[in-house]
């Protein structure tokens, strides 16, 4: 690389590129080439990454390592991934309303292709735990059809691809203590407090 690549003013290019990016988002979606769209969303539990496929919301990720999350999505779903906030407006609005205490359930379609096997069964069962209530890991193992699989239930919660929307934060230890959480224990406490209010 040499400086001589600077044929045109970089600042002027930087100004044009966001508009071109927005056009690419529209044209890619229209051509059926946008396999995964994502955006970031500021929330009381940190900056969340939301990703969707044409089928629905496929991933919600806590701030830890968004780059790694995107690389994993590229491997497991498709590398045709674009930052496309508009494609996730509805999902972002529902989450905003949830954090503002104006929504107790989500209605956006979910794409659950990242949930497989017994862990997937547990993750599906999570969706049946109503807002403002909690269950124990043991009870959830029961509901998923394998009462002895308490440890697997813990793993299912820890690997839930759609936290918050699929409420793994509503699962506690049988002694009532919080247990772990994919977004950290402070986030779990905050979500449970929010739902108790």
């Amino acid at each position: 690389m040499t400086d001589s690549t600077e044929l045109t003013d970089s600042a002027e290019l930087a100004e044009r590129l966001p508009r071109l990016h927005a056009r690419l988002e529209r044209e890619a979606a229209a051509a059926g080439l946008l396999d995964v769209a994502y955006r970031l969303l500021d929330s009381p539990v940190g900056q969340l990454l939301l990703a969707r496929t044409p089928a629905g919301l496929v991933r919600v990720a806590f701030p830890a390592d968004h780059e790694h999350v995107l690389t994993t999505l590229a491997e497991r779903i498709s590398p045709r991934i674009l930052l496309s906030p508009k494609a996730l407006d509805e999902m972002a609005a529902e989450l905003d309303a949830y954090f503002a205490g104006r929504r107790t359930a989500f209605s956006v379609p979910l794409d659950r292709q990242l949930s497989h096997g017994f862990l997937g069964q547990v993750q599906h069962a999570l969706s049946d735990i109503p807002f403002g209530t909690t269950v124990s890991y043991g009870q959830l193992a029961d509901r998923a059809g394998n009462p002895r699989a308490v440890r697997a239930v813990g793993t299912a919660c820890a690997t839930n691809p759609l936290p918050i929307v699929v409420p793994c934060h509503r699962v506690l230890r049988s002694d009532g203590t919080l247990g772990g959480y994919v977004g950290g224990i402070d986030a779990k406490r905050l979500l449970l407090d929010l739902e108790r209010a």
Binding site: T5, L7, T8, S10, L13, A14, R16, L17, L20, H21, L24, V36, Y38, L70, T71, L73, A74, E75, P79, R80, I81, L82, L83
Partner: peptide
């Protein structure tokens, strides 16, 4: 090797591609 999400490709090379297109076409 894992393949980067396409977004990274646009972010890394968008400006270069625009320069190439302008060099060949002139008109913005």
């Amino acid at each position: 090797m894992t393949k980067a999400p396409f977004e990274a490709v646009v972010a890394d090379h968008g400006a270069t591609v625009l320069r190439v297109c302008r060099a060949v076409l002139g008109s913005h």
